[in-house]
Design a protein around this nucleic acid. Sequence first.
DNA 1: TATTCCTGCCAC
DNA 2: AAACGTGGCAGGAATA
Length: 709
Amino acid sequence: MAPKIKLSLNNKTDSACKSALKTAAGRKKGSLETLEEAWARIEAMSNTPAEVRMISEVRAALEAGKIGREPASVAKGSRLSKAELKRIYPEVKSILQQEILENMVANMPSNYWLIQTEAQFSKLLRLLEKEEIMIFDVETTGTNVFQDYLVGHVIGCYSADIHAYIPVRHDTEEAQLNAEYVAEKLKPFYEDKRIKKVAHNGGFDKAILANDLGIQLENLWFDTMPAMVMLNENEASFALKTLATDYLKIPSLTYKELFGNKGFNEVSDLKVAGAYAIKDSDLTMRLMDFQHKHLKRFPSIERYFFEVEMPFVSTILDTESTGFKIDEVYAAEYAERLKNEIDTLENELVEAFEGININSPAQLKPKLEKLTGTKLESVDAKKVLKPLAGQFPLIQKYLKFKGDVKLYSTYISVLPKLVEEKTGRLHPSYRANGATTGRLSSSGGFNAQNLPSEARKIIVAPKNKVIVGLDFGNQEGRIAAAKVQEPFLLDAFRQGKDPYIALATIAYHKNYDEIGKDSVERKRAKTGFLAYIYGTGDRTMGEQLGISKDEAHELKEKLGQQMPRLKKWAQEQRQFVKRNGFVWIGKECRKRRLPDALKGEYRPLLQSTNAPIQGEAAIQTKITMNKMCEMLAEWRQNGRDFKQLATVHDEILVEAPLDITEHERDMLVNVMTQSYLLDGVENESDVEIYMERWGDAVRWQEFTEKRGY
DNA sequence: TATTCCTGCCAC
DNA sequence: AAACGTGGCAGGAATA
């Protein structure tokens, strides 16, 4: 159970506590070991890091007299145990939390304003009128931007160095200004394009303002979270409090550490709420100053940050707000069908394998070994079992079972539950820099980036809408060709050829037309090409292609002769990272810091070639999405209901009206191909139309035929 | 019983 | 000696 936090401020150490302390001190004589010995004994146990922290915190609290031992344990005369420490730990934590909060209130600086009257609020508004830079942060009931609501505004005036909290919806008897009144007064400032806004993870705050209060925040100018990514993408945590502790040397506990899982509305003492909330504005401002100073040392990174990453905060928010529509009837039927199939398969498998838990690899392995009569390395479905499936129907059945379970339990049974009640849509949630290379990641129950095609079928276009899928054609291949200026690849792209087939014609002495899209030759050439970027070794490459290590080596060499610049570039990247501990991404837009390369580790050498390619592709996608968002917003102004729906790395999904015109289609493609140009290579974008289900694509021709006009 | 670690698998 | 990159998540196993 989460510890309860007392939020009153005048509760001194009570007498119960003091008497418990006396008991603790006095009980020493009844025991065979001294307290000192007890601590030594417990500290010598094999403790996890969390336990070590727990023990030291409880010890400090006991020795400072902040808490006593358990009366029951003392009465029994039992010696101090780790279990007892664990039992009293929640109370220790609660006492420490309260102490810190009391401290924050007692030492609240004079430039921290808690605003509870109109007079105070007016004073703040007058200050704001003179500000060019405003720090802001919203305090809320939780972190769901659709369900949770604002309970208070944190506002900071940069030049005046005044930071304020305006509580409006706390569950308290204390005086609070009227929520609507405050929102109405602040709205002009939030929406003023001339005022630069500074926030930490401002996308969240922007979404709450929009969804809860109908405020459209303008000019989110500096977000200290993506800024930190620019300065060090390897940071273990990007939480404001962690960064403040580490970089500003201002020790700061996180929200969870201070308030646990409660919503901020439950903090009933507004002085406590204020002291905590206002500090965020101060920290954000200081962090911004610190980061801005460091960004200025790298003008190319600074420029990228302001031109791409900052607008992208709004772009991704806009994308998330659209949301997918789910065909709930179809999903329910599909789930039912899968469940039945899984149950049947499971029963059959359990019977065949004599009642074991077939979901346990440990239990399954010996059974499969008995079945096949061979020693198995593992029960890895892809690597080990698939080759055996043809020979053993039971293994075939098991693989089917595994596949169905994955589909059912990860996607089909789960997705419908994640539909947001307020909007009726399934909203993806992205982290703009979820991957260290700058790629996006997606999480929060619904990962929009790893849906298998079977699961995509439960997603549909809304009535009178279609989903338009725009795919970069061989995005990473083109970026690699342009980056290293490899003549062979550049020529292939220029001639509209598939570069992998072109490579295969050389490696296998065949004509271009003789090598198909799905041919072994093309696959080998592609794998060989990627091997230079991924750093694949001969043995692994051989395994991937089902050829010998020597054959793989030979193929790689052959391709290397065709792509001397790529080969050379890969070598140079490795040299560079070994010397400098980082590589550049894009035109010095951002760094991928790989400090372990300086220690001679191997993995960074692989990353040194992959990160620039994957990272630049991410930059291209972000810039393109920014442009797309801008254009679609204009279209909506003109009554055309287009919205960005999602992205899957090299793909952008747009929700479009059914009557989308050919011209509009071309404009979408134009944004894809012209927003981020490559040296010596044209971009290419495919267009697919999903009239009904995501996954069931039709080409434009077929689309217009089916549409009937 | 709840948390953390590991394995395996989905995507690009 | 050899080493393919970036993610998220389900569920068993291990831990406490």
